[in-house]
Write a protein that binds this DNA or RNA. Structure first.
Length: 881
RNA sequence: AGGCGUGUAGCUCAGGGGGAGAGCACUACCCUGACACGGUAGUGGUCAAGAGUUCAAAUCUCUUCACGCCUACCA
């Protein structure tokens, strides 16, 4: 379709979106140039996982980022939106393994090298997918800078950071109890463990003691008793004094273990005696350390019992538990079993119960990093929006524990550590070594583990800009301006970026973090791949288009935590797109603009709309700058639909269809100008339809995407015009209301008489008589200066500044009209009494601000006038009846 | 167990010390020369409950109830 064709009745987004996006992209409009002037405005995208497809969370994320980037680009900032993807170690490995399983093979059968190659294939397929989908939303990312957390440059950054933190002692390898997922076969960090409430059982086991009654210990996991190396009681517990210094026998084993004293033990829980299994429980591990207890590994990485439990060796932990009950009962070692509700840690990927295991892992020492990260938010170098999240952020930062960063996976950044088989030395190096740097032996092996996927994401704000090279981009664009993301990854990602950015770059990674709601399904459930309740954004894009979808998302992105997406709402905004489209159709067909391009508007409707527009421009700017995307959308929706379309376009029709060519051309000029401004205001949230209409409205003026965002024109504020148009609206509404209330079809011609005692108003009504008749659907408009002039048989409606009478004899049903008027009179009397009481209250008069009091007086007067008019109307109606 | 958040019209939510708001839905009338994906006019709410502060509370404070979410080493 060429720009001069007349417009179709509807916006064909299916054809237009790809065409327009293609034009932006081929025009290089997304590309940022560090050499160009302008304050930088930089966003790095929260990199979506290479697995799966675009989901609602991305759609919201991308919409808000694009909105911000487009807005600031139009303000003339040097705007960069840097896109990319995350390799998502454990998630991706699981997905690919499942695919291999379907093909009848496995990761182990392929071997590491072939498996990793297979994952790269997957990345190509699904990575391409998600990028296409971001484009469909209209994302104005600088694709020339697209990065991937495993690409060459980022891998170098990861290695450099790992080595330098190691050299500084901030990364260490240690034997520690970690969260082990027996299904994924890897360690996971503390925050990758989710807690599920489960109905479980509490087993009371008898630990027999020589010459003493058995010591009863409560546990949820009897199968771990093969790893027990002590029983602990609280030193303040008098019940167990007799056991002090004694030993007790672990059930089903011949072993005895000491009874120790530790404050950790809760006197209230169970029996107040705790079995200590340092190798299989994080707390027991700490108790074991405090007391120098040995560790016995009773469960292996597959979740099976070890040789420490000879009778059960090789059997699954859950099966053993069931079997033990019978065995314990047979031996009289089971006192009782009680039900227990408690939380069980499960793997966030596969939801298997986490098995705490002791093993050698790599850790990041987080305390010093977290301190700096918390300080940066405390002193305002980075702001969280909404600020309520700061407390959550501080709570975590202040109680942070060391971060286990090694994963027993194949897909990810392999840890740059080499272990020498000859001398036992471990070397962490920037370059792959040929031989052991310590003993020069050649028998060296690289640590097989890879890094937690969040390690590389933690570097994202600077690794994507070229670090460790000192690139032009890095200098110009770091720190970034805004991070937009969901609050669910404050700990996973935001916190890590803060720590890494401050440590490595010496500066915060971003000035503001905008935490948007989570998109939930119809029932308010969090959408997730594992729950299978995902609504596909692509379907919405296909059916309703990107503009309606984006507007629906942005209009609901307030400060709440949930965003329940209702397709009906998107449909509603599809109608809004249509409304805009047709307003533009009307504008383009209105004729040729003319008049003095530099002058101020003269016609009342033009003065009015320019004045209102100036206010809305200010509202839009303020809303976006405060990240109140919902207010921005709301302001535009209300203004465009109810002021621009419903009133302005109607107000100017008499001019456009009139005889005065000069006045017409001038109004066309303001009409087109105002529509152009509206397109500019809307463009950040509705880029496609606005760009399309702009190209029709201003052919040859370049893309709206890079045009200037409308500025509030101080000179256009026109309170006089707003007041006068307000009068026209009031008169019009009064007559329409009467018509509607009395059930009169438009075919019934009315001849209203308006009481206007104010000379200015009389002048206005006279001048705009034709317009009013059209708006009201009336035949003749009369003016009166006094109550006495009203037609004798009229019902009436009263306005703040006067009255409207419409002769209605024979046209109305006096009975229903009487009921309606009585109801209104009742309401008014009540409100009047309340206002009078208020004004008789001396405290109120003394203490309330003057403008509040005078407002109440005005309201009271208005209500009084209205009431007397209603009463007069009632008189008339009663006579008719 | 702690922390955070939310309870406002049938639904989704905005507002936030001085006349209860929006969108959708619903009702009535209207194909009026941009748009029936439209227009006009309406119906509908003790702003979760109770107490307190205040001249004035949906709004601030406290308590209670309900529902979410997050954190956590009660075995």
């Amino acid at each position: 379709m060429c720009p001069n064709d007349p417009l179709d009745k509807n916006f064909n987004f299916k054809l237009a979106e790809p065409r327009i996006y293609g034009a932006w992209e081929s025009g290089g409009l997304f590309r940022a140039d560090p050499g160009k002037p302008g304050d930088p405005f930089v966003i790095v995208i929260p990199p979506p996982n290479v697995t799966g497809n675009l989901h609602m969370g991305h759609a919201l994320d991308v919409t808000l980022q694009d909105l911000l980037i487009r807005y600031h680009r139009m303000l003339g900032k040097n705007a960069l939106w840097l896109p990319g993807m995350d390799h998502a170690g454990i998630a991706t490995q699981n997905v690919v393994e499942r695919a291999l399983q379907a093909e009848g093979t496995s990761r182990e059968a392929l071997g590491r090298e072939k498996f990793v190659a297979k994952v790269w294939e997957w990345k190509k397929i699904y990575g391409g997918n998600i990028v296409r989908q971001l484009r469909r939303l209209g994302a104005s990312c600088d694709w020339s800078r697209e990065r991937f957390t495993m690409d060459e440059g980022l891998s170098r950054a990861v290695r450099e950071v790992f080595v330098s933190l190691y050299e500084e002692g901030l990364i260490y390898q240690g034997e520690y109890i970690i969260n082990w997922c027996p299904h994924c076969h890897t360690a996971v960090s503390d925050i990758e463990v989710e807690h599920e409430d489960r109905k479980d059982k509490l087993y009371y086991l008898r630990y027999e003691a020589y010459c003493l009654p058995p010591l009863v210990v409560a546990t949820t996991r009897p199968e771990t008793c093969f790893g027990d190396t002590a029983v602990a009681v609280n030193p303040a517990d008098p019940r167990y004094e007799i056991y002090r210094g004694r030993e007790v026998q672990v059930p089903l084993t011949g072993r005895t273990v000491p009874v120790i004293l530790d404050d950790y033990v809760d006197l209230e829980f169970g029996t107040g005696a705790l079995k200590v299994t340092p190798a299989h429980d994080p707390n027991d591990f700490l108790i074991g350390r405090r007391h120098g207890l040995p560790m016995i590994v009773a469960i292996d990485g597959d979740g099976r019992l070890t040789g420490a439990a000879p009778a059960y060796a090789g059997q699954d932990r859950d099966e053993v538990r069931a079997r033990m009950v019978a065995d314990l009962e047979a031996k009289g070692l089971l006192e009782k079993i009680e039900p227990l509700d408690h939380a069980v840690g499960v793997c966030y990927r596969c939801r298997s119960a986490i098995e705490p295991l002791v093993s050698k892992q790599w850790f990041v020492k987080t305390a010093p990093l977290a301190e700096a990260a918390a300080a940066a938010v405390r002193d305002g170098r980075t702001k969280l929006v909404p600020a309520g999240w700061e407390k959550t952020y501080f709570d975590w930062m202040d109680n942070i524990r060391d971060w286990c960063v090694s994963r027993q996976l194949w897909w990810g950044h392999q840890i740059p550590a080499w272990h020498c088989q000859s001398c036992g030395h471990t070397a962490v190096l920037r370059e792959d070594p040929e031989r052991c740097p310590d003993c020069q032996g050649t028998d060296i092996a690289r640590d097989p583990d890879v890094l937690d996927t969040w390690f590389s994401s933690g570097l994202w704000p600077f690794s994507t800009l070229g670090w460790p090279e000192r690139t032009r981009d890095l200098e110009r664009y770091y720190p970034t301006t805004v991070l937009v993301t969901g609050f669910d990854i404050i700990f996973f990602w935001v916190a890590r970026m803060m720590m890494m950015g401050l440590k490595i770059m010496g500066d915060v990674p971003f000035g503001t973090v905008v935490l948007h709601p989570l998109v939930r399904d119809a029932s308010g459930q969090k959408m997730s791949k594992s729950k299978g309740n995902v609504i596909d954004p692509l379907e919405i894009l296909d059916n309703l288009g990107a503009d309606a979808f984006r507007f629906a998302l942005a209009s609901q992105a307030g400060q709440a935590r949930d965003l329940k997406l209702d397709v009906k709402r998107v449909e509603g905004y599809g109608r809004f797109v249509n409304k805009i489209w047709n307003a533009a159709r009307f504008t383009l067909a209105a004729g040729e603009p003319g008049g003095d391009a530099g002058g101020a508007p003269r016609a009342l409707p033009d003065r009015w709309i320019r004045s209102r527009l100036a206010a809305v421009v200010g509202q839009c700017r303020a809303a976006i700058e405060e990240f109140h995307f919902d207010r921005y959308c709301e302001a535009l929706y209300q203004f465009i639909w109810y002021e621009f379309c419903d009133w302005y376009l109607e107000l100017i029709k008499p001019i456009l269809y009139g005889e005065d060519e000069g006045a017409k051309a001038e109004t066309v000029r303001w009409l087109r100008l105002t529509l152009g401004d509206l397109l500019g205001l809307l463009h950040p949230v509705m880029p496609f339809v606005t760009e399309e209409l702009w190209s029709r409205l201003s052919p040859g003026a370049g893309h709206l995407m890079v045009a200037a965002f409308p500025e509030p024109q101080a000179g256009e504020a026109d309170p006089g015009a707003e007041r006068l148009v307000g009068c026209l609206m009031d008169v019009t509404k009064a007559v329409r209301q009467a018509r509607s209330d009395f059930g009169l079809n438009p075919s019934v011609k009315l001849s209203p008489v308006v009481l206007a005692q104010d000379a200015g108003i009389r002048e206005l009504l006279t001048a705009q008589g034709q317009l009013l008749l059209k708006l009201m659907g009336a035949e003749r408009l009369g003016l009166a200066t006094d109550y006495g002039e009203r037609p004798p048989d009229s019902a009436s409606n009263v306005l703040d500044w006067g009255q409207v009478w419409t002769p209605l004899a024979g046209l109305i049903d006096p009975k229903s009209e009487e009921a309606r008027l009585s109801k209104e009179a009742g309401k008014l009397s009540k409100d009047i009494q309340a206002a009078q009481r208020k004004l008789q209250n001396q405290d109120y008069l003394d203490k309330a601000p003057g403008d509040v009091v005078s407002e109440t007086r005005e309201r009271l007067a208005a209500m009084g006038a209205r009431l007397s008019a209603v009463e007069r109307a009632l008189d008339v109606v009663r006579k008719l009846g």
